[in-house]
């Protein structure tokens, strides 16, 4: 009986401990947590202003919403996805939609490749077509001296 009572007390203690443990793992949301998500979003009213840096009423409300969602246990990515689904692609710094994402990244990549191609073309074209280079180039000072001498000569 005594042994059974001990087990009961131990069991109650474990239950109590697990409840306390469960309570202590409930998420504590800090301002830094809200900031971590908010810096990935943009103000829906003032274009090109990160949500985190914006002081408009809408942004304050959004930050409140982020805090609530974090308390509910949503991950950062889930919250960002929710905002995009609700408010549109302009609330994030890089679109989530694959087409818009491609529109953002593919043309600049092609532009850069095109410019590199242009550089190579210039090298090849001007390397072949133009007259042969002189071995050394005159320094600025030499050029100036030569110009001065030529001018003196021309002017008599």
């Amino acid at each position: 009986m005594r042994r059974a009572s001990l087990w009961l007390v131990l069991g109650l203690l474990l239950c109590g401990a697990s409840v306390v443990g469960a309570q202590s793992t409930a998420p504590t949301i800090t301002l830094d947590d809200v900031h971590r998500v908010a810096e990935r979003l943009y103000c829906p009213v003032c274009e090109n202003i990160p949500l985190d840096d914006c002081g408009t009423a809408t942004c304050m409300q959004w930050k409140g919403e982020i805090e609530l969602l974090l308390r509910e246990g949503k991950s950062d990515d889930e919250i960002v996805d929710l905002f995009v689904a609700q408010y549109g692609e302009h609330v994030v710094g890089i679109p989530h939609n694959p087409t818009l994402r491609a529109l953002s990244f593919v043309p600049p990549l092609l532009l850069v490749l095109g410019l590199i191609g242009l550089g190579v073309l210039m090298f090849l074209r001007f390397g072949r077509g133009a007259p042969a280079a002189s071995a050394t180039a005159a320094s600025t000072q030499d050029e100036a001296d030569a110009f001065r001498a030529r001018l003196e000569q021309d002017l008599g």
Partner: peptide, 21 residues
């Protein structure tokens, strides 16, 4: 300029390319 304007014109969707881009 390019992507935000084109996105608006072609897809009728406004996008923001921010610091990450």
């Amino acid at each position: 300029f390019g992507a935000p304007i084109l996105s608006e014109l072609v897809f009728n969707t406004s996008i923001t390319l921010g610091v990450d881009y």
